[in-house]
């Protein structure tokens, strides 16, 4: 008996090696079956948090790419959403023309921006190569930003809403009264809504959204919130001041929107000898 133990003792290293390898193989096999070794994997809280910290760090370096991807995905989603949301009235329309996508969305990044002038412009990192056209509307997740003015091959320049030359057709959300939003060149956080008749009951705190009349922006993009209403000098119109919803000092990722039927609309206006005042 003693000799057996002595023999085993002399083999102890090999026996330990074999037993450890058997444990390892048992773990490998057990882990490959669905129920096996559930404890030793990354769903474990400590290991999970370690891996999450690691991916947090590594993800940080790909943040810019991720953002780009998200923005372009958003643009395509918006297009789909708008197609779905166009709900017909109770009148029996031909659905095929109604459900056509009227607006096309693109995404881009602002590479330079100004706030301090009265004619402010944005430079966008996409141009004709990416399908950007003159006259496209520019907005971001906060609200309206501007309108494309000139396009080069790879870049384009947009007139910012903070430009005294840009009028945006908009309306009050609560009562659908429309007017034009224009920046007065004073404060980069505020703009004015023009051409709202005096009899209109405009309330402070009401949201201003785009009206969809000018065929640049689809209806319902946020412009701002009314901060003050007063009877101004003009005998016909109210003096409405609004806080812009877009923070122009932080505009970086933007969407561009194109009305695919704007040519048809324009030719219709010309035919009927109207000027689209919006």
């Amino acid at each position: 008996m003693l000799r057996i133990f002595q023999f085993l003792y002399s083999l102890r290293v090999f026996l330990l090696f074999i037993s450890l390898e058997v444990i390892a193989i048992w773990l490998i096999v057990g882990n490959n079956s669905p129920q096996g070794a559930a404890f030793f994997n990354s769903s474990n809280a400590i290991i999970g948090s370690a891996l999450k910290t690691q991916s947090d760090v590594t993800d940080f370096f790909s943040l810019a790419e991720a953002n780009d991807a998200l923005v372009s995905e958003n643009a395509s989603l918006m297009q789909t959403l708008r197609r779905i949301r166009t709900v017909p009235d109770s009148i029996d329309f031909q659905l095929d023309s109604l459900l056509n996508a009227t607006y096309e969305f693109k995404s881009a990044r602002v590479i330079s921006n100004s706030l301090r002038f009265s004619q402010n412009h944005l430079t966008i990192n996409k141009g004709t190569v990416d399908g950007i056209k003159v006259g496209m509307g520019v907005f971001n997740h906060e609200g309206i930003v501007g309108r494309v003015k000139t396009v080069s091959k790879n870049y384009s320049v947009a007139i910012s809403l903070l430009n005294t030359g840009l009028l945006v057709s908009s309306k009050m959300k609560s009562n659908d009264v429309f007017g034009s939003v224009n920046w007065d060149g004073k404060n980069s956080k505020q703009a004015k809504m023009l051409y709202v008749p005096r009899h209109v009951n405009a309330k402070v705190g009401d949201t201003i959204i785009t009206s969809g009349f000018n065929a640049v922006f689809p209806e319902g993009i946020k412009v701002g919130i009314i901060s003050s209403v007063s009877q101004g000098k003009d005998p016909n119109y109210l003096d409405i001041l609004l806080d812009l919803s877009t923070d122009f000092s932080q505009v970086s990722y933007i969407y561009l929107v194109e009305n695919t039927q704007s040519e048809e609309l324009d030719s219709l206006y010309i035919k009927s000898e109207l000027t689209n005042e919006f």
Partner: peptide, 15 residues
């Protein structure tokens, strides 16, 4: 292994 999600394989080879 636990971090590689290859339970046992590193242990086997390292041993």
């Amino acid at each position: 292994d636990v971090f590689y999600e290859t339970i046992g394989i590193h242990a086997l080879s390292a041993t």
